[in-house]
Design a protein around this nucleic acid. Structure first.
Length: 270
DNA sequence: CGCACCCCCTGCCGGC
DNA sequence: TGCCGGCAGGGGGTGC
């Protein structure tokens, strides 16, 4: 579910609320996430004061006052919701944290593909991976051009690979390739320098717009205060198979690329 | 190296 | 109405 804009929206919303707060209680109702919750997960968080939550790739990272970091990955259906103390437990509420102001921070995840952990700073790089964050200023057309040389894989697969670019997922790669005028199945090595410049510019534009609209809420995504995003209303291609292209009215086509549904306009994208 | 195909898990939707 | 297959924003592993 959540890609960079959704995770960024959560971080920006929760960071000022959580910073400086102390976790007074941690309730674990379900440890069987994709990576099972560590035995000492609750003990490592209880009593800790939270620093400023940030995002890298699709991970949320919050420094703790003992030098460790609280790490969250939302998988497909994870939600982190800050609310009042009297929130009744819902189905799939796996972890509930009580703050020193009485509010409750709850992790809910129907499919349990997410990950919660408390890690040492030295472990973060291994978990998050080597990918350059999609909003890192160093990521430019020259970078993508260099990275795509001698790569016979599709440009879509390359951009979705978190070891290359961290933060993009299926929605935003489809959207940015539409804006860049590049077909998802184009071999990476066949991108021109100009294609790479347009792809990176399109990526920034799509991500910035999506963040300003609070992300895309297709079915599950909500921000840290349980609010839906609205960028789904602006999608040019994602989930629009058969619908008219917003630029040229040609029906949007769909097929599968490296296992993921892919959408493009056969006229606007070459 | 790239990809097809598994897995993890629940929910929803469309077809029959 | 009910059942069943397919699909869903995530990642990881194997084997060809």
């Amino acid at each position: 579910m959540p890609e960079l804009p959704e995770v960024e929206t959560i971080a920006r919303g929760l960071a000022p609320e959580l910073e400086g707060r102390t976790i007074t209680e941690v309730q674990v109702r379900e440890r069987r996430l994709r990576v099972p919750l560590a035995r000492d997960f609750a003990a490592r968080l209880r009593g800790r004061r939270l620093g400023r939550m940030t995002r890298t790739g699709k991970y949320l990272l919050t420094p703790l006052d003992d030098g460790r970091l609280w790490l969250v990955h939302l998988g497909m259906t994870g939600r982190l919701t800050l609310g009042g103390a009297h929130r009744l437990p819902l189905v799939h509420d796996h972890v509930a944290m009580t703050l020193d102001d009485g509010r409750l921070l709850v992790y809910n995840d129907p499919r349990r593909f997410g990950r919660l952990d408390v890690v040492r700073p030295a472990d973060v790089a291994r978990i998050v991976g080597p990918g350059v964050d999609a909003l890192d200023p160093s990521l430019d057309g020259a970078w993508l051009f260099a990275r795509s040389r001698a790569r016979r894989t599709s440009v879509k697969a390359l951009l979705m690979d978190q070891r290359q670019v961290a933060g993009l997922g299926n929605i935003y790669v489809n959207e940015l390739l539409f804006r860049a005028g590049v077909r998802p199945r184009r071999r990476a090595e066949r991108l021109s320098r100009a294609d790479c410049e347009r792809a990176i510019a399109a990526m920034r534009a799509v991500l910035d717009e999506a963040i300003s609209r609070g992300g895309s809420s297709i079915s599950d995504y909500r921000d840290g205060f349980d609010r839906a995003g609205s960028f789904q209303d602006d999608h040019a291609v994602y989930d629009r198979a058969g619908a008219p292209c917003r630029r040229c009215a040609t029906p949007i086509r769909t097929f599968v690329v490296v296992g993921r549904s892919t959408f493009y306009c056969p006229v606007c994208q070459v």
